[in-house]
Simulated assay, not measured.
Amino acid sequence: MISLLKNNLLDSLKTVAPLIIVAGLLQMTLVQALTLLFFQFLAGVALVVLGMTLLFIGIDLGVLPMGRFIGAELPKQGSIAFILSVAFVMGFATTIAEPDVLVLTSQVGNISQGGTGRTSLLYLIAGGVGVFVALAMARIVYGASMRVLLTISLGIVILLSFIAPADIVPLAYDAGSVTTGVLTAPIVLALAAGLSSVLAGRDAISDGFGLLGFASIGPIVVIMIMGLLS
Rank of each mutant, 00 (worst) to 15 (best):
A72C: 07
P170R: 03
R202H: 08
G24V: 00
F92M: 07
G208R: 06
G130T: 08
P186G: 04
G127L: 05
L159P: 08
Y123V: 12
K76M: 09
S216M: 07
L149S: 11
R139E: 09
P170D: 03
G117P: 09
I158Y: 11
M137P: 07
L30K: 12
A192F: 04
L13V: 12
G210Y: 02
I158K: 10
I111D: 06
V31C: 10
E98M: 07
V133A: 10
I20N: 00
L84K: 11
L122Y: 00
S161Q: 06
G218D: 03
A136R: 07
I217T: 12
T119M: 13
K76V: 09
L4Q: 11
L171C: 03
L211F: 11
F132C: 02
D11H: 14
L212T: 04
G109Y: 09
L30T: 14
A138Q: 12
L54N: 08
V221T: 08
S12K: 06
S112Y: 06
T53L: 06
V101G: 01
T105Y: 00
D167M: 10
S196V: 08
T29K: 10
P186A: 05
A97G: 10
L47A: 14
M224C: 09
A164N: 03
F209E: 13
S12M: 08
L183H: 06
I225D: 04
V22N: 00
E73T: 12
G24D: 00
I111K: 08
G213M: 10
A87P: 05
F56M: 15
M90P: 00
L212D: 03
L25C: 10
Q40G: 10
E98L: 06
D60T: 08
L26K: 07
D167F: 11
S145G: 05
A144N: 15
T35I: 12
G227D: 04
P75F: 01
L64M: 15
L50A: 15
G114P: 00
T15Q: 01
A23W: 02
V169F: 03
G115T: 05
V86E: 01
R139K: 13
A23G: 03
L5W: 14
Y123I: 13
I217R: 05
N110V: 14
S3T: 13
A138D: 11
G127D: 04
R147H: 15
N7A: 14
G109V: 03
A192T: 13
F56L: 15
Q113M: 14
L121E: 01
F132Q: 01
F69R: 14
A190E: 05
G218K: 02
A193F: 12
L42W: 02
A17G: 02
G201F: 09
L84V: 11
V45L: 07
G194R: 04
S216R: 03
I163Y: 09
I152D: 03
G115E: 04
G78I: 10
V48W: 08
V222Y: 01
G71L: 03
G67E: 05
T53W: 02
M224V: 09
V63F: 11
G143A: 09
L47T: 13
G176W: 06
P219V: 07
K14F: 05
Y142F: 15
L34M: 13
V157C: 10
S12F: 06
L34Q: 14
L55A: 12
M66G: 09
L159F: 15
G67C: 09
V141Q: 09
V129I: 13
A23S: 11
L34V: 12
G67T: 08
I125R: 02
